[in-house]
């Protein structure tokens, strides 16, 4: 499969993004991203279904540029579903459907002319369980996104280093980039996944309980990483850990689903306010650990 090498010949990731968006400008509304800085993500009236069952109802949320937004709430409230809607991973479930809009700097990612792959390239994702590609080396894992998107670059070494540095993994793996991704510890694997997501320079990075499978030490390390990368990318993180939300996020949205009803946002606002002076009593109960 060498066709990837013969096509799309661009220098760096950043310029390629411009090429890609201007190329599709004629027919499809492009995602207007300058390719360097993060973008704002906004959901408008999001509903989600699995089959006939409504699991999310009317979710409006603004996830501001270069800020960390935390999604909290008890299990089953639909926050993971919401996260997956934000980069069109929701639709790979055969019975899933949704309504509403998700705007990346004003462009609807669910526009009929928009390709899911394009959206996902600009909105990266880190999963609950670390999932580096076991058959690839550490280096190839980081470069996987470039390879998948046929981005050619003569600066691969720099890209690998930059991404690994941002993910806080560089010093640990720089001398063994050829080792298989699966050979790392759990926390290292998760940071490798972050590096992998960052290597394609996404505008937004979604994180679905990225620390839930990790030990406390690794968790702290990842939280540190999140705050560092938030300078360049908008971060949306789902977490069960109230303290984590408090530590890493600028803004918090509290999701709730009661008695089999669909999930919705009870309250959203600056993290400090949500935790210290919540307006809704249910929020207060939840953040103070009275249920959930």
């Amino acid at each position: 499969m060498t066709m990837s090498d013969s096509m799309a010949n661009t220098e760096t990731v950043a310029t390629d993004r411009k090429v890609a968006s201007s190329a599709s400008a004629g027919t499809a509304p492009s995602l207007r991203i300058d390719g360097v800085s993060a973008a704002q993500l906004e959901s408008v009236g999001i509903h989600a279904w699995f089959g006939e069952r409504l699991v999310l109802e009317n979710v409006d949320l603004v996830m501001e540029r270069t800020k960390v937004t935390a999604l909290i709430g008890p299990s089953g409230c639909g926050k993971s579903t919401f996260l997956r809607i934000l980069n069109r991973m929701h639709e790979i479930v055969p019975s899933a459907s949704l309504a509403g809009r998700v705007e990346l700097d004003g462009d609807d990612i669910y526009d009929p002319n928009q390709r899911a792959a394009t959206v996902r390239r600009h909105i990266g994702m880190v999963f609950q369980r670390p999932n580096p590609f076991p058959a690839m080396s550490i280096r190839d894992n980081v470069l996987a996104g470039l390879r998948f998107n046929k981005i050619r670059s003569s600066h691969k070494d720099e890209i690998v280093e930059e991404a690994l540095v941002k993910a806080g993994l560089w010093s640990e793996v720089k001398d063994r980039q050829g080792a298989l991704g699966g050979a790392l510890s759990g926390g290292q694997q998760q940071r490798l996944c972050i590096a992998r997501a960052l290597a394609v320079k996404p505008a937004v990075l979604l994180m679905d309980e990225p620390c839930s499978a990790l030990d406390p030490g690794s968790t702290l390390r990842i939280e540190q990483t999140i705050q560092e990368i938030a300078e360049e990318v908008t971060v949306v993180i789902v977490t069960h850990n109230m303290q984590q939300a408090l530590r890493v996020s600028d803004k918090t949205a509290f999701f709730l689903a009661q008695d089999g009803n669909p999930g919705y946002i009870v309250e959203a606002g600056p993290t400090k306010e949500i935790f210290e002076s919540p307006k809704d009593p249910r929020t207060a109960d939840y953040v103070n650990g009275r249920f959930g």
Partner: peptide, 26 residues
């Protein structure tokens, strides 16, 4: 594991890429 397919999709890989570069090597 399906996680790997999702990871690949989240990196915007086309389907054939996911199969060729991730699923089959694994």
């Amino acid at each position: 594991h399906n996680d790997l397919r999702e990871a690949s999709m989240a990196l915007a890989a086309p389907e054939w890429r996911t199969v060729w570069s991730v699923v089959l090597p694994t």
